[in-house]
Amino acid sequence: MFIQIKDLNKQYLNKENLPVDVLKDIDLDIGKGEFVSILGPSGCGKSTLLSMVAGLVQATSGEIIVDNKKVTKPGKDRGMVFQQAAIFPWMNVLENVMFPLRKEMSKKEAKLRVKEHLKMVQLSNYASHYPHELSGGMQQRVAIARALAMDPGVLLMDEPFGALDEQTRTRLHDQLEQIWIETKKTILFVTHSISESIKLSDRIIVMGTRPGTVLADIHVDLPRPRGEHKEGMLKLEERIMGLLKKEIDKVVDEELAYETSN
């Protein structure tokens, strides 16, 4: 398996210095080239899980192995796209996408690679623009191009379209699907949108909350493009909704209890 997550646990200490389980006994195997969504309500630790694969957050116990190497720190073999574009405002688009390449290849080579990736996200004409001159959707495409330009084994995406408007999001879904088909990258995609996960992924890992655990591992075998199979998508959506309902109720109950106790 390309990515192996074994007995992964993550705890943090709360204000009273008591350990709280964020993630409990996560076991996952992900094959090369798979598009996998991690779906769950807020607070289920899905973003933490992704950050741990990226090497930004350390596990309390257990291990993550990517391409036969144990993850201990961040590396260029795992590209990450965040909810906010996180491209650097003091660099133009070209310089931003070149950032991860500047040390490992000549400038000429890097420029060529950047141009290729800007074309992939349809931003060839914006190489010399600065981030503040771009829309949110364009900024996020730059971030995707930047992550892909390092040619990582896996692309980690943390609710990458969560901050965009509906129309832009739909367009970027199609673009991402196209990019995935062209590059055959393994993609781990964190989202709280059921329809987004059904539209894009081969597999959906449904997570429950407090502590974060894997509730279900669903294979999506609807043919692509999925927009033409509305009925199948709807059926799956209902099924996942049923799985998540209990979890969402749990969160709401806790929040209500918290409010009334204050």
Partner: peptide
């Protein structure tokens, strides 16, 4: 912190 995280995932 987002800039720092992003840079770290790019090997910086």
């Amino acid at each position: 912190p987002l800039y720092i995280k992003a840079a770290r995932t790019m090997g910086s």
